[in-house]
């Protein structure tokens, strides 16, 4: 992924700041990666190289864990990230149907971001709200009992789809 003008500077500034907060030891790799993602939304290759230098590790040993854990993202997420829960209760209650609906409406697949970087779609494994299954998380907000109709409702609330469909019905 090519970095945009100015992005490189932002990354360097942030990561330098983060690295100052931690002892430069391998044990801090996961917390450092978490902090980078928290501030930048993802973990750019440049950040991994800086971390590797600071911790005195081969860069590939930063790349390995960054690709291993569910939490880490190597490409920028959407401004709004829809996380569809795929825990047992949610799956059996229609989690896959909810995910399909998001894919259909946003025209992206799970794990992707819309070209304008506004919306991202991913699945999570159990957010622990099984009694509201199926659930979707938008930011820190949990939406329960998500049917395809509710998916449209959520997307409308975030202007992710226009209300063309509703208008058609009125015609």
């Amino acid at each position: 992924m090519e970095l945009l003008e100015g992005e490189k500077e932002v990354i360097v500034n942030y990561v330098e700041g983060i690295l100052e907060e931690f002892d430069p030891v391998q044990e801090n790799l996961v917390p450092i990666l978490q902090e980078v993602q928290e501030r930048l939304g993802y973990i750019p290759a440049l950040a991994m190289e800086m971390i590797a230098t600071a911790l005195d590790l081969p860069p590939v040993d930063v790349y390995g864990p960054a690709t291993f854990y569910n939490q880490f993202r190597l490409v920028p997420p959407g401004k709004y990230q829809f996380k569809v829960c795929m825990g047992t209760a949610c799956y059996m209650a229609g989690g896959q149907i909810a995910l399909d609906s998001f894919e259909r409406r946003l025209n992206i697949k799970e794990g992707e971001t819309t070209p304008d970087r506004e919306f991202g779609l991913e699945h999570v494994t159990c957010v622990g709200c099984c009694t509201l299954a199926p659930v979707v998380m938008v930011g820190d907000q949990v939406e329960g009992h998500v049917t395809p109709t509710r998916v449209d409702g959520i997307l409308l609330a975030y202007d992710a789809i226009t209300d063309e469909k509703e208008n058609e019905g009125d015609k």
Partner: peptide, 8 residues
Amino acid sequence: NSMEGKMG
């Protein structure tokens, strides 16, 4: 392993 900064 993950606490030590490696793959789990």
